[in-house]
Amino acid sequence: MTFPFRNAVLTGACGGLGQALARALIARGAAIALVGLNRPVLDELATLAPERCSVYTPDVADAIAMLACAKDWTQRHGVPDLLIANAGVAGGFDTAQADDLVVMRRMLEINLLGVATTFQPHLAAMRTSGRGALVGVASIAGWRGMPGNGAYCASKGGLIRYLESLRAELRGTGLSVHTVSPGYLRTTLTAGNRFAMPGLMEPDDAAHTLLAGVARGCTHIVLPRRIGWLSRALSLLPAAWHDHLLLKQPRKPRVGEAGATAIPGLPAQHDTSSS
């Protein structure tokens, strides 16, 4: 099957899935805007096809900065036909801890608002062109809340509903909207997890499956598919049983705890990111 996309914008291009997607898109001949915070990683990816790549390092939640990136990219390479909003952060959350409210706000900014700020600057031009795909990377965690993971589950659950709304709004325009729900991928976001991760998937395999699904027009893509079946099976249990099972599992580390992943843009006392 011929890959139908030639001009892509990819956020979160520094992470495990993001780098895998970037390499796959470059290998398929697409021009690609590499958006992320780790400039050296992005620059290294851009060397794979310097004539087709541009590097941008905005805060994805900053609408003005994202608009500036979109204008620059369009001037260089034209209107994109593939937007992949992949930027995301994860971390444990405890409502009883006042400091965690700041973490929740930042997680919602990146994981939810950041998808809208990725799509918005390109949407009018893409509607005029009458073709293109908008891809939001959500999570299986958005299907049901999990103890100690409320902020992340809320951000991804909200994203799933946002993408559903956008899909309905764009019907008949020639644009498609795709919701991606990964389970567990072998990336820095899962490296600190202290619980079982069934169906753990390699980023390169996930990237291939994601792009193939979008190319086929799949509106819902689960990575890997079997983790979706497991999640749906568990959802059939009474809520009390389901909660009891989850309460037995170790929780994802909160910011500042051993094994926690960095969340860029937090106030100084919270920020553990070097990017």
Rank of each mutant, 00 (worst) to 15 (best):
T187W: 02
E169C: 10
R186W: 03
R167Q: 14
P203F: 00
N193S: 09
V214Q: 03
L210I: 04
R167W: 07
T188I: 12
A168H: 14
N193R: 05
A215V: 08
G217E: 03
M201L: 15
G172F: 09
L211M: 07
L210S: 01
A212G: 08
T187E: 03
S165G: 15
C218Q: 15
T219E: 15
L189P: 01
P182W: 04
L163A: 07
A207E: 01
T173N: 08
M197F: 02
L200N: 01
L163N: 05
E164D: 15
P203D: 00
E169D: 15
V180N: 08
L185Q: 03
L210G: 00
R216G: 08
Y162E: 12
N193H: 10
L211I: 04
L185D: 02
G174T: 12
S165L: 13
G213F: 08
A206H: 04
N193A: 10
G172A: 11
L163M: 13
G172K: 11
T219P: 10
R171N: 10
S181W: 06
R216A: 15
Y184S: 02
L211R: 03
V177K: 05
D204S: 05
P182G: 05
G199Q: 03
V180R: 08
E169W: 05
G192R: 02
C218T: 14
E164S: 13
V214M: 06
M201W: 04
L170T: 10
G174L: 10
E164V: 11
P182N: 07
R216Q: 13
G213Y: 07
M197H: 01
A206P: 04
E202R: 06
Y184N: 02
P203W: 00
S181G: 12
T187H: 01
T209F: 01
P198C: 03
M197Y: 00
N193G: 04
I221L: 07
G199M: 01
H208V: 11
S181Y: 11
R167D: 13
Y184L: 01
L175R: 07
S165M: 13
L210K: 00
V214L: 05
S165H: 11
R161P: 05
E164Q: 14
P203N: 01
L210D: 00
T188R: 14
R171Y: 06
H178S: 12
V214G: 06
R216E: 13
M201K: 06
G192W: 00
L200R: 01
G213M: 05
L175M: 11
T209E: 06
H208E: 13
L185H: 02
T209V: 12
S165Q: 12
L163R: 04
G217S: 05
C218A: 15
M197V: 00
Y162A: 11
R216W: 03
V222F: 07
V222D: 12
R167F: 08
H208L: 13
L211G: 05
S181D: 10
T188D: 14
F195T: 08
L200V: 06
R216F: 04
G199R: 01
A168L: 15
I221D: 02
S176Y: 08
H178F: 08
T188P: 08
E202H: 04
R171M: 13
N193I: 03
P182L: 05
